Structure formats: structure tokens, C-alpha cells
Amino acid sequence: MKKTTTLIVAGCLVLLVSAFAVKKIATAEGYKIGDIAENFTLKNIDGKMVSLSDYENEKGVIVTFTCNTCPYAVAYEDRIVALDKKYAKQGYPVLAIMPNDTSIKPDDDLNAMKKRADEKGFTFPYLIDEKQDVFPKFGATKTPHIFILDRTEVGFVVSYIGAIDNNYKSAEAVTTKYVENAVDALIKGEEIIEKETKAIGCSIKVAKN
């Protein structure tokens, strides 16, 4: 009887620990401004692996969580391409990551990503977060969701988090270009005025266990 009780108690403790672990992952807020981003390695649409550390010779990276299926992400595709075209040559290239679970969004799988990148003329890597363990570290919740990383002696520092600009409906109607303003400030060695804005987009899709 004593042995049975011990086993029951031990089992309950395991369940409690497991529940806490799941809750901790699910409620993780991710990086804050000033945090150092950890290195990660993900598969690109060409089948090759790409790491954040591959960008150690750049001034920084515009990490963009996006996908094929979200209308907000689609609306921003041309603007993301334009960001890479403008800033890659200045040391701040775009690095796009697709974070959705493809069992929920099959049109976001690697083949669909490759097709979309070809159609839109993506000039930057388009990586898939297959295990969905990178976007939670960043704290990304939307597609699109932008994290500007500035390379320093201690690593890639998170310098901006949020939206690309203040009008997802029309590039012509934009009055504030958050990402461009932030990168321009970093290039000039100035303080970023707006370091955080609210990301507008679709929620990142995660399969329920």
C-alpha cells in the first residue's frame, strides 16, 4: 500500500512538472529590447542550413517572421523585398522565417515557400521553423513580426521589435516607416526613437498536443 501511494505521488509530481514546463513554454514572452539573440540554425528553401552566426560580418539582421498564407504577410511581401534591396547593401539584410505548423497550414510547407519565393523574387533566405523552437525565443506572435538585430562585440542585440510600418493595407498610405526609421538610426549611430510597436498580422499557428 505504501509503495502504491509513493508511486501515485511520484506520478502526480511528474504531471505537475510537465504541466509547468508546458505553461512556461507557452507563456514565454521572448526577447526584450537590449537582449542578446541566441544563435539558431534553420533550413532554407534551397535545402541548405542557415544560421544567425552566418551573418557575423554584417552590421545587423532584419529578422522577419512571415508566411505564405496570412493576408497581412502577403500584403507586406513587396515591402519586405524592398527592405532587403535597400538595406542589405548597407549591412542589414533581411532574414525571413516561416513559423507556422504546416499540419495546420499546409500551404506554408517548404515546397510552397519555395514557389512563393520564386514568384515574388525573394532576395533573401526564407527559412522554415519546423520544430517551432525559434519563434518562441524571439517572442514572435504574428506574421509578419519584425526583430531588428544589431551586431555588437557581445552578440546580436535586439534593437527593434514590432511592425514594418503603420499601414498594412497600402504602402502608399504609410506615414511612419518603423523598420526603416530604426535601421536608419542604427546606421547613423543614433538612438532609435520607436523601439517597440504593435505587430499587426495573423497569429502564428501551433498544433495542439
Results as ranks from 00 to 15, higher is better:
P106K: 13
A163F: 01
K137N: 08
Y76L: 13
I148F: 00
V74I: 15
I128S: 14
A82Q: 11
G201R: 00
T143A: 09
G91L: 12
T143D: 05
L7H: 04
E119A: 15
A207K: 14
K59N: 15
K177R: 14
L186T: 02
I161H: 00
N209H: 06
T176V: 14
H145W: 03
G30R: 05
P93H: 14
C12Q: 02
R116I: 05
P125Q: 11
Y55P: 02
A163G: 02
G162L: 03
G47Y: 07
P144T: 14
P93L: 14
A96E: 02
L15P: 01
K188L: 07
I204S: 00
K169Y: 10
K3L: 04
L186I: 06
K2A: 06
I192P: 00
T5W: 07
V158I: 10
A75E: 10
I104R: 12
A10W: 01
S159R: 11
V94C: 12
F156V: 03
P106M: 13
N111T: 11
V9A: 12
K131E: 14
V157W: 03
P106L: 08
K208G: 00
A140G: 10
F65Y: 10
N209K: 08
K43N: 08
N167T: 00
T197L: 02
A171P: 00
I36C: 00
V74P: 02
V63Q: 03
K43Y: 09
Q132I: 10
E153L: 01
S18V: 11
I62T: 12
A171K: 15
C12D: 01
K115E: 12
A26S: 11
V154N: 08
E58S: 15
I200E: 13
T6Y: 08
P144R: 06
G47N: 06
I97Q: 14
V206E: 04
V14A: 09
V154Y: 04
L16I: 07
R151D: 05
K195V: 13
K177M: 03
L127I: 14
N44W: 13
I8S: 03
T5A: 07
N209Y: 08
N181R: 01
K169A: 14
T123R: 07
I193V: 11
P71E: 07
I33Q: 01
V9R: 02
L110H: 08
S170R: 08
D133C: 03
N68S: 05
E38R: 07
I36E: 02
A112Q: 12
K32V: 03
T4L: 10
I164V: 13
T143Y: 03
A28Q: 13
E153K: 11
V183G: 02
Q90K: 15
K114Y: 06
F124P: 11
A75Y: 10
A73M: 01
E29F: 02
C12I: 15
G11P: 04
E130F: 14
T123Q: 12
A19T: 06
K205H: 06
V63P: 01
T152C: 05
T176W: 04
V61Q: 07
F124L: 13
V74D: 13
F138D: 00
P106I: 09
K85N: 12
D107T: 07
F65R: 03
V74S: 11
I187M: 07
V158Y: 01
N68R: 06
G155F: 05
F40V: 09
K48P: 01
V94T: 12
T27M: 05
R151L: 15
A171M: 09
E38N: 10
K169Q: 15
V134G: 10
L186M: 08
K59R: 15
C202L: 04
K169P: 02
N166S: 09
T175F: 05
